[in-house]
Design a binder for these strands. Structure first.
Lengths: 217, 217
DNA sequence: CATAACAAACCGAACGTTCGTTTTGTAATT
DNA sequence: AATTACAAAACGAACGTTCGGTTTGTTATG
């Protein structure tokens, strides 16, 4: 039987990838040297080249690992996607996305490194296929529910994509960029406001309130 | 009697900044060399160092120029801010932000370069002060209108910030990152869907089921 | 059990280039 | 004449990568 024994070389490879992730995500690709990676990984430069053809395949490998995470069907976010209960799942979506960003904030930064230094060469194709998969999985369920009148007019898929992208960007800026968005309120509160707007909009709903809509004077 | 005469040296400085902007925004800071800048600007390396203390001040200068653009009261976007007619101004906001991003897509990329390679060192303070200024300008007007019942409950400023950030991100990804978001629809249509959701939410409004989005012609 | 044989893992010096910056000297402008 | 603008060469340091040699671990053989 095949044992999953941890080879010594695996430890080195892991150390190199971890060091490279740390450095690429905090300095960029071009500004990170192989010697820096070697030192941080407590490994010789020659050893790195024994395991990796060159600097770029290290970067590529790191991006591949992020895709594995994001595409994992066991990921909570993906399970929410396949249930497709928008907009009831907005809170769950926010929580799951926060979890992804918190757990993989540095890997997410690599995407921006790729955009800046490689013109998005490594990630473009992936993003396109991912968007398609998402639309297929989530979209069918949604359009059915819309026919039943559970959702307002317009393409419901847009609403989900909009929210998902916004959540991702929100937490990425907060966590990966390290820039608190500070809408003048707590994080959780800001998410709550966003969800409220997504569901009900910012214009007052006329029915149960004495105030009826008096816009466009 | 200040002459606005264009000195010859100004032409060199301008060429250097233009070349540096092009290179920094497409390769990142660390991966761009002074020799590359010099060649693209048709200027000698020594000449660059005659006008700029070092490489980093070139980068800093470029970011400063972007702030000047964004803070200019004459900028259409800023004029919309000071009128604060949310959510009626959503279309105008989208258009103005698209204009800013289209006109300054490369400078916007510098922000991401700063985040990646300098941990946002150059931009952090600016963003904080800008958010405050925005909240002060736009916020007062909004809270008054909310008291008059023109807006739904919750902090109305969140809605504006939410929309503004989303528009910026949307156009930045489209134009600066060069990644078409392709929500399965036209750009203008996607913006329209977003605005509709912002105003009315995705849940159907009680008055007439499902078809309440007919106003705002 | 001991050991020879072999490959994978690893190291660190060295290669040729290129880096950011400085120095030196000349042309242009004032 | 004095100062600014510019170009070219040169500096030491650092770059990505290569390479010869050593250590380590496993397998085969006695």
């Amino acid at each position: 039987m095949a044992r999953a024994k941890a080879l010594k070389s695996d430890i080195s490879i892991e150390a190199v990838l971890e060091a490279a992730l740390e450095l690429f995500s905090s300095q960029g690709y071009g500004a990170t040297s192989m010697r820096q990676i070697a030192e941080k990984a407590s490994v010789s430069v020659g050893n790195i080249y024994h395991h990796f053809k060159n600097k770029e395949v290290i970067f590529q490998r790191l991006l591949d690992r992020y895709w594995e995470v994001v595409l994992d069907p066991k990921l909570k976010l993906n399970r929410i996607f396949s249930k497709a209960e928008f907009p009831d799942d907005l809170e769950d979506l926010a929580e799951a996305i926060e979890e992804v960003v918190n757990s993989h904030s540095r890997k997410i930064l690599l995407i921006y490194v790729d955009v800046i230094e490689f013109r998005g060469a490594h990630i473009r194709k992936f993003y396109e296929t991912m968007a398609d998969r998402f639309a297929e999985k989530y979209g069918k369920n949604l359009s059915e529910r819309r026919k039943k009148g559970e959702l307002a007019g317009g393409d419901p898929l847009v609403g989900v994509m909009l929210a998902v992208r916004w959540f991702f960007y929100f937490f990425t800026v907060e966590k990966s960029f390290g820039v608190p968005m500070h809408f003048g309120m707590d994080n959780r509160q800001a998410i709550g406001e966003f969800i409220k707007i997504m569901r009900y909009g910012v214009l007052p709903r006329g029915n149960d309130d004495g105030q009826s809509q008096k816009l466009h004077g």
